[in-house]
Design a protein around this nucleic acid. Structure first.
Lengths: 230, 230
DNA sequence: GTGCTGACAAGAGCATTGCTCTCGTTTGTG
DNA sequence: CACAAACGAGAGCAATGCTCTTGTCAGCAC
């Protein structure tokens, strides 16, 4: 045992990383549909069959890229949030939303991979769940801070009777310390945020919205108000 | 000229329709990624090269399916709207939203085709634009009716200064008879609607929201209030 | 040190795909 | 009636994901 981890294991990690890097490059350049195992192998100077020692199938490679994408998005959002950690909750909320938008515009194909149509079959592998939750947790955190902070949270109208139980369940799962209407509104806002980003990204706003950035900022603000921030 | 349109032309239309039908079947069964020209031809008892007389490429077939999907969605929404044409504007708004959700759940792969990641390259062919606008126009109509109707429209706060000009432009393009803040809010709500639907469809709500239908109805109602309906 | 085992790379190969080209045949029309 | 356009069939090309077999080399136990 000359090295801590074994030279073999280290080499394996390096090759795995190189494969993912090259795959990410092709993903960014051409999109998920054109990501080809053979092309990745070719670019790396290996033969295609050798690649299967590291990823048992193309879908497994894609899954790895999906997890990385969630992480990258989460990290971006968290960093942007830290930069305005002292600001008022509504400003922090908007900052997180804008970070999500920025990342998405900068990584359109990776966005499509995680929030567009599920590319492989339909399976969202269990492994992606924790990574996927990061942005959501961040938004919850902002609202919780506002709730506990000096200004408090705007009181939201009660949810309709038919939704009372469900809202309670959502709150219990996501943020037991927040009022049920706030928790429900948070989930709605979370989905709506990605609706806005997706529409801009996939061209639905072409010929409709020109000044995308102020438009989005305004919408994000409204979203924040919808969960009780002010 | 024995027939009105020529037997040949009619045959062509029939074959074209048969191809699209079979393609739609495969799309619904397996998704856009697995839609194969050869498989379609095989199922129709023709040879693959013959199919190219009708669609010059796989992308062209997909484009045809996209237009049909937009039309199908638009028709669904319009029908649902007509069924509640006498109701209050907010009810009609919710009905249209629910029709969009219903159609999307019933045609997940077609939804993915038009609102998911752009499957081929990036091109949204010009031909799809009018079909794509139908749901939007329907929503605009509901709000316009409310604006002109007895109850009127809730007054919306003015948009921030940085967005004033853009909101005016959007209103001029989309609905010159509506106040600019309403027009801007409409675009936002439009995007958010598809954010909600997409999140449910693509599994983002798994383990988060259980009672999807009342949850969506509530969210749709909020969306309607956001554009001034009541 | 010396073997042995398991990880690895390389190559050939299979089924499938989108698409092109060529060659007869049919068909509607000037 | 003749002719051109439309059509179907088949072969073929380059590429893909994936499998199987074969040779090789590194790292471990003895």
């Amino acid at each position: 045992m000359s090295t801590v981890q074994g030279a073999r294991a280290r080499a394996r990690l390096e090759v795995t990383a190189a494969i993912k890097d090259e795959a990410r490059r092709q993903l960014a350049a051409e999109g998920a549909a054109k990501l080809s195992l053979r092309a990745v192998a070719r670019e790396l100077g290996m033969v295609s069959s050798a690649l299967y020692r590291y990823f048992p199938s193309r879908d497994d490679l894609l899954t790895a890229l999906i997890i990385d994408a969630y992480d990258s998005l989460g990290q971006s959002a968290e960093r942007s949030h830290e930069a305005v950690a002292e600001a008022a909750p509504l400003e922090r909320w908007v900052a997180v939303c804008e970070a999500v938008r920025r990342w998405s515009l900068d990584h359109p194909h990776e966005y499509a991979l995680i929030y567009g149509s599920p590319v492989p079959g339909y399976v969202a592998p269990q492994a992606t769940v924790p990574a996927a939750a990061r942005v959501g947790l961040l938004l919850i955190g902002v609202v919780r801070d506002a709730h506990d902070g000096p200004g408090g949270l705007e009181e939201l109208p009660a949810v309709p009777e038919e939704l009372r139980a469900e809202a309670d369940r959502i709150a219990a799962d996501l943020a037991p310390d927040l009022p049920a209407p706030v928790a429900a509104a948070l989930v709605v806002a979370w989905a709506q945020l990605f609706g806005l980003v997706g529409f801009e990204l996939f061209g639905q706003f072409n010929r409709v919205v020109e000044e995308r950035e102020p438009f989005f900022r305004h919408a994000a603000r409204q979203l924040g108000r919808g969960v009780g921030l002010h």
